[in-house]
Design a protein around this nucleic acid. Structure first.
Lengths: 303, 303
DNA sequence: TGCATCCATAACCTGGCGGCATGGATGTCG
DNA sequence: CGACATCCATGCCGCCAGGTTATGGATGCA
């Protein structure tokens, strides 16, 4: 008998939540859709997985059994998926490089050029992810190596080398009163609403809100942005301000948004990261070396 | 990303066969359907799995990677499926007993009655499968224990106890010339067309065609039947004759079909079988004991 | 009694899967 | 050299299954 892994994911979430309605929310589908899917799974299996009540959905014995084993199925598929994609890019001499918007700056082209000199037969496939995944797809095996903003959650599961360090600035609506200052003490921003990355990004979100550097002061979220366009629009609309790497000031000029240096917040770093499984991967190694070479002589592309 | 396990099965078969057309045959789908499914899998993965040529489909590197891991996914799902169903019937105090049509005879009710005396709180769920699966669902984990016709393919992966032995008879169209004999030497049937079980039943099919007892004589297939109704119709229609257990003569009387003893073919056995994993399952054990008790005193249901 | 919170059901729309028929490429054989 | 066989791909169509919105039914709470 066949199943769609989607059904198993649905089931797993419902089992975990214990509520159809809440699970539907987490899965971004309507509650009737989930009702039908769960029912269908039960029909296909010929087994009751939940006992329904107004209080929610409780697992039956059979449901518990499935809930125990479904994750293994999903993981097996996930592994197959990642390894297949990895094999594909490898065979095509394509290095998949993930990056988050804020990590891409002038250095990127220099690094890629240096890598291409080391591996002339290889092509670099740059893949940008939105800010819900600070690992830029590395954690999911979607890329072989990634240019990231440090620090980030899950960092200790990855190999990381620092490529460069730069101060954090702030982006403000150009009409903002503080825009008149040439340089802004962070404390002056404590009561401003901030534009935040999505909650899925974990404490990376907190890092860019600098929650640790507010002396206990509560942070106000003015809006959530998943990518530079949403972010720039939110700021230009006056929904809030946002810390950002200095390089952003050069890369994302837009009417209505201005950038200012900030004092009183720690600097940010760009790092190159890869999976421990690729420690012996010479191609990944060459890309990392290209990054480190850049670190040594950032102004000399031919370095 | 989600997949239907069906897609993975399709892929695995195509990978194994190396030919879309042949794989389609094995999977009982049309070749265009397979073409589309494989393409879709490739699109979803964003990866080429095969290199097409007029000679067939050859796996790419990525395809090989997937072909290595897909079986693990399918097995994980298969295990989850079986264990869930097992948990369900166990929790409901239901013993799932599989049987093939020809194995069910007078003994069945006696055995079930004896089991019920041993386990009054348990219900027996009798599940008949068609003749494409001689294990009556035991191999697929659809049942906990099965009443089968021995011998059968895969027998050595199962625990088996013989319940009874009976001669094989032949079923003929009533208008058949040989019907006038009170007893038919098997050799007289060598040139008759035979009704066969489906090919999926493996050499169980050959056993009921008695291919080993024809002295090398080629067997003629007159029709294929998956269940008693198809079988009786085929015989009544004159498509062929068929060996069958003696008990069938009592259970499946129908106008146009007669039964005669046959000399020169080995007898057949009814066995009870269970999965080695259930060696310590006391409920399965009780059912087996009920069968063996029946073997000791078949005429005394209370025995 | 009115409201909130669950899950189930109904009606509807759409996309995907399967089938058949057919096309295109490429060896093989008379 | 042309007819044929053998692959896989494509176009078209019917149908089902998944999703959505709106609504109903049961139950606990203020």
């Amino acid at each position: 008998m066949d199943v769609d892994t989607r059904l198993l994911r649905y089931f797993a979430v419902v089992a975990e939540e214990g509520h159809l309605t809440r699970a539907a929310g987490r899965l971004f589908v309507s509650q009737p859709a989930l009702t039908k899917q769960v029912k269908q799974l039960e029909t296909q299996l010929g087994v009751e997985l939940f006992t329904r009540s107004r209080a929610g959905m409780a697992l039956t014995e059979a449901g518990r059994s499935l809930a125990e084993r479904a994750p293994a199925v999903l993981q097996a598929w996930d592994l197959a998926l990642r390894e297949t994609r990895r094999a594909s890019s490898r065979a095509a001499h394509v290095l998949r490089v993930g990056f988050v918007a804020s990590a891409a700056n002038e250095s990127t082209q220099t690094i890629v050029a240096a890598f291409t000199r080391r591996r002339p037969s290889w092509r670099v496939d740059m893949r940008q992810t939105d800010w819900s995944d600070p690992t830029a797809g590395l954690a999911d095996g979607l890329v072989d190596v990634a240019l990231l903003r440090l620090p980030l959650p899950g960092q200790d599961q990855l190999r990381v080398e620092v490529v460069l360090t730069e101060p954090r600035w702030v982006a403000l609506p150009s009409s903002h009163p503080l825009a008149e200052l040439a340089e802004i003490p962070f404390q002056r921003l404590w009561d401003e609403p901030f534009i935040a990355t999505p909650p899925e990004s974990g404490w990376w979100r907190d890092y860019w809100l600098a929650t640790d550097e507010r002396d206990g002061h509560e942070v106000r979220i003015g809006a959530v942005a998943r990518n530079p366009d949403e972010w720039l629009s939110a700021i230009a609309n006056g929904y809030g301000v946002s810390l950002t790497p200095e390089a952003t000031a050069r890369f994302y000029q837009r009417p209505g948004v201005i950038y200012r240096p900030v004092t009183g917040v720690s600097p940010s770093q760009v790092g190159v990261a890869w999976a421990p499984a690729d420690d012996d991967n010479q191609v990944v190694g060459d890309f990392v070396r290209a990054c480190l070479q850049h670190r040594a002589s950032p102004d000399m592309p031919g370095g």
